[in-house]
């Protein structure tokens, strides 16, 4: 076993256990904190794939922004300190069935992909540079790039409309 494999196994285990804790933890805040650990585990997986950029983006966006947003959203609810009701309701069986179907579908898809051949990786610095160019190249992803900006602003406008609405009602 190589060291990389060892780190992979540890990171994968942490990610999965934390993910399970997210859905089983009775306190919402604890679920939020476990989610952060799970996201951090995914960042380590990105590093093992030799993509430092995605790893840092994972931390900068998912942990620093989205997870904190989620915790703040939890704090907006009432009675956050108390435990929630039972973790499983009467739809539990149906949910388990649905996730099994999803798992089967994903497995069927993954198995169709030919076994990964160790492709030579371009040097990381060139990689980032190429990404930057591709984002604004006419032959690249210029349209999705600009549309992404418009979409993010749309998300901002929508969020402000929704969040400001109660203030007006009071």
């Amino acid at each position: 076993m190589t060291l990389a494999q060892l780190i992979f196994l540890a990171a994968a285990a942490v990610t999965l256990v934390a993910a399970i804790m997210v859905v089983t933890s009775p306190r919402l805040i604890h679920a939020g904190l476990w989610l952060i650990l799970s996201l951090a585990g995914i960042a380590v997986l990105f590093i093992l794939l030799d993509n430092g950029f995605l790893a840092v983006v994972q931390v900068a966006i998912y942990i620093d922004a989205i997870a904190i947003l989620i915790i703040i959203a939890v704090m907006l609810t009432r009675a956050v300190m108390s435990d929630a009701d039972r973790q499983i309701n009467r739809m539990g069986l149906a949910a388990a069935f649905a996730s099994l179907i999803l798992l089967a579908g994903l497995l069927a898809m993954v198995l169709q992909v030919p076994a990964a051949s160790p492709a030579p990786l371009v040097e990381a610095e060139v990689n980032l540079d190429a990404l930057g160019r591709a984002l604004v190249d006419v032959d690249g992803f210029i349209l999705p790039f600009e549309v992404a900006s418009v979409m993010l602003v749309a998300a901002l406008v929508g969020a402000i409309l929704v969040a400001m609405a109660p203030a007006r009602g009071d």
Binding site: G52, F53, V57, V59, I63, D64, E125, L128
Partner: peptide, 9 residues
């Protein structure tokens, strides 16, 4: 190669 972003993150 992502030093600056790393420091902020």
């Amino acid at each position: 190669n992502v030093g600056v972003l790393y420091v902020i993150a």
